[in-house]
Simulated assay, not measured.
Amino acid sequence: MSELPQIRVRKGRGAVTNQAGRFEPCTREAVDDGWSTDEALREATRVETQVLPDSSRTILASNDSPDVPFERSINPYRGCEHGCIYCFARPTHAYLGLSAGLDFETKIFAKHDAPALLRKELARRSYKPSTLALGAVTDPYQPVERRLGITRGIIEVLAEARHPFAIVTKSAGVLRDLDLLGPLGKAGLAKVCLSVTSLDRDLARILEPRASTPTRRLEAIRGLAEAGVPVAVLASPMIPAINDMELERILAAARQAGATSASYIMVRLPLEIAPLVEEWLEAHFPERKAKVLSLIRQSRGGKLYDSQWGKRMRGEGAHADALARRFRLAARRLGFDERRWVLDTSQFVRPAADARQMSLL
C-alpha cells in the first residue's frame, strides 16, 4: 500500500498532514488500498473550518520572557485559519488533544466571552495597566473575526478604559476598526505591528494560505499610518533560502507605506513544527529542502531549534549573524526607529465590572 499522493497539498491549507500531537498515545496514517475513487480522493482533500467555543475563565496571559517586550497579552482565538506553516503557536493545539497540523488551522476555538472577561480584569482594584499585546500568539484578525467581531469587542473595552495596547497581525482586516484605532493611535494608546513575510504573492500564498496578500498588507500599513496609528513592520519569520533574500525589500516597501519601526525573527521550529515544515518543503520546494534545513541547523547549533533565551529569536552562527547585520544596516538606512511597546498608561480609567452598570459621576 502506498501513501495517498493526492492529499499531499490541500488548496488553502498550510500543513500537508495532520500528525498526532505529542501527548497522543497513537497515530494514524492515510494509505491507498486500491479501492479509492477519484471523488473519494477529492473529498479527502477538503477540510472544512470548524469554529468551536472556548470556555476560558480568564483572558489575560502573562509571561516573563526576556525575548518579548510585553508582560500581558490577549488572544481572542486558539488556532488560526491563516495556515502559516511556520507558526510557533501550532504546538499549543496538542494541549487540546489535537494536531499541530491541519487541526490547528481548521479547528478554531473562539473566546466569545473575551470582552466581558477583559472588562472584569480591568475593573479589579488591584489591576495596574501596562501595554497589552493583542494577538501575540494567534492572529486576532483571522477570517472568522469578520463574522464574530470578538477582537472589535475587546478594542471597544480597551478604548473605554483608555488602556494602551499593541496589535500583532498579518491581516488587512485591521482596517475595519480604523474608527477606533485612529483616535487611540493619536492619543498614544494604540499601535499596530503588521507582519510582512514576502512581497511575492505566490510565495506568500504558499507560506500563509489564507492571510492577506502582500499588497493588501502594505495598503493596511498606509491606511493605519495616514490615520495616525504608529505602525511597526515585522519581517518575520525569515526562512533561509525561502524568503530571507527579501529582507531589505520588505523593509523598504513598509517604510514607503508609512511604517516607522521594524523588527525581524529567524524562523523557529519547536516541537511539532519541525516535521510539519519538513513535509511542507518536500511538497513545495523539494529541490531546496536540504539547503533550507542545513542553513537552519547552522543557525541553531546543529539542531533545527534552540530554545535558549536570547538565541531562539535570532539564531547564531555565520548565516544568522549576516542576517542580523543586514537588518541593522537596512533599518538605519531607511530611518526606522527602535520598536517600542511603551505606550501611555496615565490615561487609564477603571471601567465598571459590568457594561450595564452606570457611573454615579
Rank of each mutant, 00 (worst) to 15 (best):
F88W: 09
K170T: 00
G101W: 04
P129H: 10
S55F: 09
R146F: 08
R78C: 00
H82M: 06
T92Y: 09
V174D: 11
Y95C: 09
R119S: 11
A89I: 08
E48D: 11
C80D: 07
F109E: 06
G79T: 01
A114P: 00
A116T: 14
K170P: 06
D54T: 05
R46P: 09
K107S: 10
I74W: 06
G135W: 05
G173D: 14
P66G: 06
P91W: 05
T106V: 12
P69K: 04
G173V: 03
G97W: 13
N63S: 14
T106N: 15
R162D: 06
Y86V: 03
Y127R: 09
L132T: 13
L98R: 15
F104L: 04
P140Y: 13
A100F: 07
V47E: 04
R46Y: 14
Y95I: 07
V51R: 05
S130M: 02
G97N: 09
E105A: 11
R162E: 11
A161R: 09
G97I: 13
G135K: 04
N75G: 06
V144M: 14
A161N: 09
S130T: 14
A136R: 00
A100T: 08
A172E: 10
H163A: 05
A172I: 01
K128R: 15
F104A: 06
R57A: 13
A44C: 03
R90A: 01
Y95E: 14
T92C: 05
